[in-house]
């Protein structure tokens, strides 16, 4: 379970998060929606100590992660997998080596054959095969995103964090990635937090949705509850989603 308690984050004079409080029960998919620059990614990075909140508490399975040192954060990060806005693949390594990277660290007991088997298994989870020997720059951006997902799930995280996983992708790949998030979350029984602009996807696969505006939560609830929410920003997001639905 992940719990945010009155979390504030300030960059200089600018307050990006203004007293965020919410909870994500185990095994649920939570979507965090909002326009650009409202602190969605900052919120996600605070969970794993990649950023520190100015005040407030963030509990991951009961452990307050806000005041932990890099060493103390290690077990928390071990539980979590994060898919970044960029694919964040290591350019100098092949796709195989990228997926195997975390495995070598966390499963040193794996033999070469076991490692290769696990890498193949993870790549097949994201519908990729035959790309193991290629470098990241030799495959498309959408494929890189999927490899990033494979690298993340390879080490069996219990919590999956997605930072705008479909930004910059075409509609077909976007759909495929969204289906993958749902499939992986259900298949691997993970708790998932997805930062996104995509209301349609949130309505399709989220258990809970939070809408952020100017660093504050302006709406929260299940997809059904969100559909009835009168907040102007939620209506704007819904309108876009409904327009897309009508068009398709």
């Amino acid at each position: 379970m992940i719990t945010f308690r009155d979390v504030h984050k300030q960059f200089g004079e600018r307050e990006v998060l203004k007293g965020i409080t919410f909870e994500v029960p185990e095994g649920q998919i939570l979507f965090i929606l909002g326009t650009s620059g409202t602190g969605k990614s900052v919120l996600l990075k605070n969970i794993v100590g990649l950023m520190q909140p100015t005040s407030g508490q963030i509990l991951v399975d009961g452990t307050d992660v806000t005041r932990l040192s890099e060493e103390e954060l290690f077990p928390v990060r071990r539980k979590c997998g994060m898919v970044f806005q960029h694919p964040a693949l290591f350019d100098s390594l092949t796709i195989f080596e990228n997926v195997a990277f975390g495995l070598r660290k966390h499963y040193p007991e794996y033999s070469a054959a076991q490692l290769a088997e696990r890498v193949r298994e993870c790549l097949s989870l994201v519908y990729l095969s035959g790309v193991e020997d290629k470098k990241p720059q030799a495959i498309s951006y959408g494929m890189q995103k999927r490899v990033s997902l494979a690298r993340t799930v390879a080490v069996n995280p219990r919590i999956l964090l997605f930072d705008e996983p479909t930004t910059g992708l075409d509609p077909v790949t976007t759909r495929a990635i969204n289906d993958l998030i749902l499939e992986l979350s259900r298949k691997l029984k993970t708790t998932s937090l997805v930062v996104s602009h995509d209301m349609q996807c949130a309505l399709d696969i989220a258990d809970q949705i939070i809408v952020l505006d100017m660093g504050e939560i302006v709406a929260r609830g299940t997809p059904e509850e969100l559909r009835k929410n009168p907040h102007p920003l939620v209506r704007d997001f819904l309108k876009e989603a409904l327009d897309a639905e009508t068009a398709s």
């Binding site: 990075k45 794993v48 990649l50 890099e70 290690f74 990060r77 071990r78 979590c80 997998g81 994060m82 970044f84 960029h86 964040a88 693949l89 290591f90 350019d91 990277f101 975390g102 660290k105 966390h106 690298r151 993340t152 080490v155």
Partner: peptide, 9 residues
């Protein structure tokens, strides 16, 4: 990529 390294321990 630096943050990805941290996340991979």
């Amino acid at each position: 990529q630096i943050e990805a390294l941290k996340m991979l321990g």
